[in-house]
Amino acid sequence: MSAGWTHHSGTAVALDLESVDTDQLIPARFMSVPRVQGYGPYLLHDLRYDGAGQKLPDFVLNRHEGASILVARRNFGSGSSREAAVYALVDFGMRVVVAPSFGDIFSANAVNNGLLPLALPEADVDQILAMLVAQPAEARVDLQAGNLRICGRDYAFQLPQVWREKLMNGWDDIDLTTARAPQIAAYKTARRASTPWVWPS
């Protein structure tokens, strides 16, 4: 779990694609790497590098390597449960992804790593992409207020309270759960009595 945050200001860039799936975010061949080595180089690898491993100079993330807010089209992060897709974004430096919709598992993984999956209506995203197409822009995200400010415009966004608090507090769920050990133990006793076949003999 990363440290919590309430505001983020950074450079927003447009990735004008829909269904940027987990296999594009990080191709499977890189997933055996231990996290400590850093996953940033693998983010969108096959869009960023040619077959010989050379950077493609026109690709948006190669032109703007300091970007921390990514704006894309619908169905971002669909596919696999690989948390490595989020590691690649976070290790590259991303803090926020803006899109009309996200894969459910991707969103949960993102929040668990301090990355905000910021969902906006398609029309808003279209407008933002149009503003960013020529060049990136500075943007500011306020988690508490639920507001994205970019190119002088404000976009309000909704966030489940669970996610907001986790992002702001940098919570580690295991610590929170361990505090509930007596409730878990009581549940387990009842489960053993009602469905003993959960524990195969």
Partner: peptide, 21 residues
């Protein structure tokens, strides 16, 4: 039955439970 990410896998390993909305 549902798929989960590595942070959640670690949580299930450690507690045999999972937080879900």
């Amino acid at each position: 039955a549902f798929g989960i990410g590595a942070t959640e896998v670690a949580h299930v390993l450690a507690t045999q439970t999972i937080w879900q909305m």
